[in-house]
Computed example of a mutant assay.
Amino acid sequence: MGIVYRSRKKIGPLVLNFTENGYSSWSLKIGRWSWNSKTRAHRVDLPGPLSWKQDKSRSR
């Protein structure tokens, strides 16, 4: 397993994700809810270290 470069740039509720190859995806985070453009998954942060995720494949 090698070292992987990842970077995030936050602009208000919009988060831009970058890897060593450049732009990767964008995310929208409002409160505890977030959505990622690459995985098209919804995520809700729950209390503590828990979170709930709904994948695009399961939402249909």
Rank of each mutant, 00 (worst) to 15 (best):
G2V: 13
G2C: 09
I3E: 09
I3Q: 09
I3M: 08
V4R: 14
V4F: 11
V4G: 06
V4M: 10
Y5V: 08
Y5C: 05
Y5A: 11
Y5T: 10
R6K: 13
R6T: 14
R6P: 03
S7D: 14
S7C: 09
R8M: 07
R8H: 09
K9P: 00
K10N: 13
K10V: 13
K10H: 12
I11E: 10
I11L: 15
I11Y: 11
I11Q: 12
G12C: 04
G12D: 09
G12N: 09
G12K: 07
G12H: 04
G12Q: 03
P13H: 07
P13C: 06
P13F: 07
L14E: 01
L14Q: 03
V15P: 04
V15F: 05
V15T: 14
F18K: 03
F18S: 02
F18C: 03
T19C: 09
E20G: 15
N21G: 12
N21R: 14
G22L: 07
G22Y: 04
G22Q: 06
Y23C: 05
S24F: 09
S25Q: 11
W26D: 07
W26H: 14
W26N: 09
K29L: 05
K29M: 09
I30L: 11
I30S: 03
I30R: 03
G31H: 05
G31P: 07
R32T: 06
S34V: 01
W35P: 01
W35E: 01
N36D: 15
S37K: 07
S37I: 02
S37A: 13
S37E: 03
S37G: 10
K38F: 08
K38C: 00
K38L: 11
K38W: 03
K38Q: 11
T39D: 11
T39S: 15
H42A: 00
R43N: 05
R43G: 03
R43V: 06
V44S: 00
V44H: 00
V44M: 03
V44P: 01
D45N: 11
L46I: 01
L46C: 02
P47A: 05
P47V: 04
P47Y: 03
P47W: 05
G48F: 03
G48Y: 00
P49C: 04
P49W: 02
L50T: 00
L50Y: 04
S51C: 08
S51N: 12
S51A: 10
S51H: 12
W52A: 04
W52R: 00
Q54V: 07
Q54R: 12
Q54P: 00
Q54F: 02
D55F: 12
D55M: 13
D55S: 15
K56P: 07
K56E: 14
K56H: 14
R58K: 14
R58Y: 10
R58T: 13
R58W: 07
R60W: 12
R60H: 14
R60L: 14
R60N: 15
R60A: 15
